[in-house]
C-alpha cells in the first residue's frame, strides 16, 4: 500500500493518466477539470497505489503541500506542448522539492501529450525544468500519451521497482 501524489499544472493530463492506469472497464473517456483533489486506488503487480489526484488550477496548488507528508512517491505531469508555461511548472516543482514535509521520495515526470505536433522531447523538458540539478532523490522522465496510455506503464514499472527496493 503506497501513497502516490499526482501533481502538475492545470490541463497537463493528470486525471486522464490516472483514468488510463485503472482497469479498462472502469475507465472513463471524458474528464473534467479537477476541483480540489480525487483519491483513486490502482493495482500494479503486487503493489496497491493510493493515488491522490491533485487539482492543478492555480488556486488549488496550495493544497498540494497538505499531502506531502504522506506521499511515498510523486508523479509530476508536464504538458509537453505548453512551452510557455514550462517556467511555471519548474517554479512549482522547485517549490515542491524544497518543501520540508516532502521526504526524499522518488519522482516520476511524465512528459505528457507527446502526440501533439508541437510537443517537446523529454530531454528538452528535463533541460527546461532543470531536472539534472536534482541530486538528492531518484527521478526519471518518460514521454507519455494520456489518451492512449502509451508510456505510462514504463513510468509505473520504474516507480514500482524503486518502491520495491525501499
Amino acid at each position: 500500500m503506497v501513497n502516490v501524489l499526482v501533481v502538475g499544472l492545470d490541463n497537463s493530463g493528470k486525471t486522464t493518466i490516472i483514468e488510463r492506469l485503472k482497469p479498462r472497464p472502469k475507465q472513463s473517456m471524458e474528464v473534467a477539470p479537477t476541483v480540489g483533489f480525487n483519491v483513486e486506488e490502482v493495482q500494479k503487480g503486487a503493489l496497491t497505489f493510493t493515488v491522490f489526484d491533485m487539482s492543478g488550477a492555480g488556486r488549488y496548488r496550495t493544497l498540494w503541500e497538505q499531502y506531502y507528508r504522506e506521499a511515498d512517491a510523486v508523479i509530476f505531469v508536464v504538458d509537453s506542448g505548453d512551452k510557455l508555461r514550462m517556467v511555471v511548472a519548474r517554479d512549482e516543482m522547485e517549490h515542491m522539492l524544497a518543501h520540508p514535509n516532502l521526504r526524499k521520495v522518488p519522482v516520476v515526470f511524465f512528459a505528457n501529450k507527446k502526440d501533439l505536433p508541437i510537443s517537446l522531447p523529454p530531454a528538452e523538458i528535463a533541460q527546461a525544468l532543470g531536472l539534472n540539478d536534482i541530486q538528492d532523490r531518484p527521478w526519471n522522465i518518460f514521454p507519455s500519451n494520456g489518451l492512449t496510455g502509451e508510456g505510462l506503464d514504463r513510468g509505473m514499472d520504474w516507480l514500482a521497482e524503486r518502491l520495491g527496493k525501499a
Binding site: 499544472l9 492545470d10 490541463n11 492555480g58 505548453d82 510557455l84 508555461r85 511555471v88
Partner: peptide, 13 residues
C-alpha cells in the same frame, strides 16, 4: 519598452 499589458494569457492568469 513600447507597450505593456498585464492580464490572463492562455491558461495563466
Amino acid at each position: 519598452v513600447t507597450a505593456l499589458w498585464f492580464g490572463r494569457y492562455g491558461r495563466e492568469d
